[in-house]
Amino acid sequence: MTQDDFWQGIRGGFPVMVSASPFGALFGALAIDNGFSVFDAVFMSATLYAGASQMVGIELFGHKVQPWLIVLSIFAVNFRHILYSASIARHIRHFSGVQKFFTFFLLVDPQYAETEKRAERGEPVTFAWYLGFAMIIYVPWQIMTLLGAIFGQMIGEPRAIGLDVLLPIYFMGLVLGFRKRDNWLPVVAVSSLASIAAMHFVGSPWHVSIGAIAGILLAACLPLPKRHEEPVTLEHEV
């Protein structure tokens, strides 16, 4: 049963791994460009494991930005994870403490999205499934970072081989996957517009947090659907 779940997780995470791999290689190559050693690049992928923020980090480091500002920027890009971890708390309360540690360490965007979808389908969110899904993404992410760093020069200009278009399209696919949820269209519209405005007036990476908060506030203020009359109860735990 546990093994089945693990393999089911691996199969589920496989397409994510395929689409994330070019970015792992790209990160490795760009890290070398920005003064990282091969070790530094893999060390960052292994300890942060947060693609978009890793890209931001190497970019700022390459521009000799103050260390505290680099860390703050990475924190800002990853701030959305606070919302993810609050949101999946409902589904993982049966995990042990050690399991929760790994669960949160490995909580990347597609991992969160698939955990929510699995719970929505009524399938059990087991640690074995979660770990299988995570490992098929985490391990290749390190390998691709290493390969990208080693063969950095061979990737050349990412735009020339169309890599730059993959990330936004991938995220768009995730957005579409949630289109059955309440208030999906107004939330997407408001978050999109707010992030564009914030990017223009405040700048990157704050457009991520500002745009997200705009959509979430809207969802909290819109009329509630009928079936939410019974609030979900969470047992108290550490």
């Binding site: 919302l83 929510e116 995220f171 995730l174 957005v175 457009h207 609030p231």
Partner: peptide
Amino acid sequence: ITQMKRIPPRMEAALNSVPAAVLSTLVAP
């Protein structure tokens, strides 16, 4: 969130909107 005994409905509506809201900010710009 685990410091709170139960999730108020508006907070649940807010949590449900998180993925679409965040991911939209990575797409639209």
